[in-house]
Design a protein around this nucleic acid. Structure first.
Ligand SMILES: [Mn+2]
Ligand SMILES: [Mn+2]
Ligand SMILES: [Zn+2]
Ligand SMILES: [Zn+2]
Lengths: 143, 143
DNA sequence: TTACAGATGATAAGAATTATTGTTTAATAA
DNA sequence: TTATTAAACAATAATTCTTATCATCTGTAA
């Protein structure tokens, strides 16, 4: 870790009211150096190289803390348990970032996309799934 | 169950090459009668009212079977484990429906949306997350 | 009707995540 | 600097969700 990195980490912690612990700093640096969408286990493996005594629970807790603070995001808000889609109409989803409730919105009511069927990357498109992220009516009351 | 429903179920099974068992029929009817995005436990509870001896494992297995056959969908392809987003640029995701790999696509390269900031439903929009579902290059080889 | 591949129910096992608890540490003020 | 204390930590038990195993049963087609 460079002095600059360390300083920036302390700044980030100050901004979000977090205690600047050694474990958090290494986790922060490890995450910044990773690509893709790593799992907690993958992150843990990397942190452990630099802090052999680190606990998996600490990695989980601090990933959640970083996410709650907005320092990092999670890839998907619905990574929990399996849910069955029983609505056969073409539709998308309104996902509340606070309570994680999911409600349907008809494709036409969203009215926003012209969907390219091919992408330069060689990916064969089947369909688009849009999550509109935000706050549901009942979660707008408390700030 | 009406005769019509039973007949339609047999037809669906025939189309997809599935054995038409009693458990599957009740599951099918229960799913069709539900709204929202039920969990396997919720579905199990309803099936159990009509077949008290049914096993949770059977419900899981047949939900997966229905999904694999395309009779129902799952709400999200990434409902597995937590993944950290370490890419801070505005981007969306290409999700392979076969191997479930997730790769990034820059917002501008997707180039498709004009995003309404308000929705009639009273939902407060923060941002949009688009999953482009389809087949990644390596999964296009096998049909 | 019978044979049998495939489905079911009971339950053990596994994977991912969270809770608990005793110990250690970072921040702050004397 | 050192003492104080709330917060964070490591270790690990517990919980939740899902899948695997296996003995028994059943739907299908000959
Ligand atoms: Mn839906
Ligand atoms: Mn991404
Ligand atoms: Zn909400
Ligand atoms: Zn693929």
């Amino acid at each position: 870790m460079t002095i600059a990195t360390a300083t920036r980490f302390r700044q980030v912690c100050a901004e979000h009211g977090l205690t600047a612990t050694h474990q958090r700093q290494i986790l922060f640096e490890v995450l910044q150096g990773m690509t893709g969408h790593p799992s907690p286990e993958k992150v843990y493996a990397k942190v452990k190289r630099r802090i052999p005594s680190v606990s998996l629970a600490t990695v989980y807790k601090n990933i959640h803390l970083f996410i709650a603070s907005g320092i990092f995001r999670e890839v998907s808000l619905h990574h929990g348990s399996l849910r069955v889609e029983v609505n056969s109409r073409p539709h998308h989803h309104l996902v509340c970032t606070v309570c994680r409730s999911i409600s349907d919105i008809d494709e036409k009511d969203l009215g926003l996309l012209q969907k390219p069927k091919t992408l330069s990357s060689g990916f064969l498109v089947e369909r688009y799934a849009v999550d509109v992220l935000g706050r549901c009516p009942s979660c707008q009351e408390k700030p």
